[in-house]
């Protein structure tokens, strides 16, 4: 029986698989980056879910607040989001350069062009 109480973890797994699938299957480099982003986002949600305490608030020391969520996973994920942004921007920059030098962002066409240059001078 699927427990609905843990539905956020099911969302995590769905996003993770969807992102991973997009990453592997798509031929378009930008779509690959989108897949990679969805894949990473699922992990952010995993961390955020595990830090959340039911009924808890933000960890601010004030009167009347007894239960609060664990802030550490949330802070960790801020760092991971920054890493994710850096990765995405670098990947997009590479795609621009690839488009400039190959004239395409379709992986199969790039492989074909590489195959042609493999018979030419090789590094």
């Amino acid at each position: 029986m699927i427990s609905l109480e843990l539905y956020n973890y099911w969302v995590v797994i769905f996003l993770m698989m969807a992102g991973f699938y997009t990453l592997i299957v798509s031929n378009h480099l930008i779509k690959k980056i989108v897949g990679l982003n969805i894949f990473q986002t699922s992990v952010f949600m995993l961390y955020i879910s595990m830090g959340k305490v039911a009924g808890g608030t933000a960890p601010i020391a004030a009167e009347g607040i007894e239960t609060y969520s664990n802030p550490l996973p949330h802070v960790l994920i801020l760092t991971a989001i920054v890493v994710g942004i850096a990765t995405t921007s670098l990947a997009l920059a590479l795609v621009i350069r690839i488009k400039e030098s190959y004239g395409t962002v379709q992986e199969n066409e790039i492989l074909e062009l590489d195959h042609i240059s493999d018979t030419g001078p090789q590094a």
Partner: peptide, 12 residues
């Protein structure tokens, strides 16, 4: 230019 695709593949 294959350095670019190599780098992209490594990045993924």
């Amino acid at each position: 230019r294959r350095a670019l695709t190599a780098s992209f593949q490594y990045l993924i």
